[in-house]
């Protein structure tokens, strides 16, 4: 039977379709003049950033520059002291606990060392979210878990415990666990740290392939320039609490911005100085009198 165009449900469905079309054209994540401090220490100072859907984005910067804080703000683990962070059109820090948890079900996060549950097997780690958030029968969960593990090349390791895995394998299991419910957004906190070149390349390849296959958006917080520039679509550099530079991998490689140049080429001295600022001069500290008196 043809739908009555005056039917309220029909109109609501049309509106929902239009809303989703509109949302698809908007950035998935929007940072608007975001400030964040730990006590008196300012971490972010007026960060503006838009992240489009379907891209792999890298956020780079020195240690303590606030990269991980950006991920915590997106996940709602921290609240900005000023400004707003929106994910899929919703301001994260304004959401109630239930709404935030509902949003988090559409997000995945890969922690620096995997953060696998050490008392659960590889299989149970990947099945964890499915068992917590769905009523799927165990037979279907088994099939889904094996599919996710197969996607990261570890179907054969489903019976192992986390303590029996290498660092790279643990990272891949954690990745399988993060994509268990097919998230719209994946966040990776230092995914390449401590990996050998093969594992590093495997993880990098998986991030790119899974992002494209599952239609996700991925954000990487990383120090690894070479691997990141190989797989990402866009890079943001964070320094002194602001976005110091941004661009495509090719633009970053050719950048003349001093900070970016120092970072990309691993130069020892530059805008990020080798020496931590001292209150007194070197010669004063050593008690040496120089001709200039310094």
């Amino acid at each position: 039977m043809a739908r009555n165009r005056g039917d309220v449900t029909y109109v609501a469905e049309l509106l929902e379709v239009e809303r989703q079309k509109l949302m698809a054209t908007l950035p998935l994540i929007e940072f608007k003049n975001v400030n964040f401090s730990y006590g008196s220490r300012v971490i972010l100072n007026g960060v503006d950033m838009n992240i489009s859907r379907g891209q792999v984005i890298a956020i780079m910067g020195g240690s303590g520059s606030g990269k991980t804080t950006l991920l915590r703000l997106i996940g709602g683990e921290a609240k900005p002291s000023a400004g707003s962070v929106s994910v899929a059109g919703r301001v994260v820090h304004e959401l109630g606990r239930d709404e935030l948890f509902k949003l988090r079900r559409k997000m995945g996060m890969l922690f620096q060392f995997g953060a696998l549950f050490t008392d659960l097997s590889v299989f149970d780690n990947v099945a964890f979210q499915m068992r917590e958030h769905t009523n799927l029968p165990e037979s279907m969960i088994r099939d889904l878990v094996l599919m996710k593990l197969h996607a990261v090349g570890l179907r054969g390791a489903h019976h192992l415990m986390p303590a029996q895995l290498s660092g790279g394998m643990a990272r891949r299991v954690a990745l399988a666990r993060s994509i268990a419910l097919d998230p719209m957004l994946m966040m990776f906190d230092e995914p390449f740290t401590g990996l050998d070149p093969i594992s590093l390349s495997v993880i990098g390849g998986l991030i790119r392939r899974l992002t494209d296959t599952l239609g996700m958006t991925s954000i990487l917080v990383t120090h690894d320039i070479q691997e990141s520039l190989r797989i990402v679509d866009y890079v943001y550099f964070l320094a002194d609490g602001v976005i110091a530079a941004h661009g495509t991998p090719d633009e970053v490689r050719e950048s003349k911005v001093p900070f970016v140049h120092q970072f990309v080429h691993g130069e020892i001295d530059g805008p990020v100085p080798f020496h931590y600022q001292a209150q007194t001069s070197y010669s004063q500290d050593l008690g040496v009198r120089t001709e200039s008196g310094v």
């Binding site: 996940g75 988090r104 997000m107 922690f111 917590e132 958030h133």
Partner: peptide
């Protein structure tokens, strides 16, 4: 923290 990010209290 991972559990919290998976929307499990």
């Amino acid at each position: 923290a991972a559990m919290g990010m998976m929307a499990v209290d």
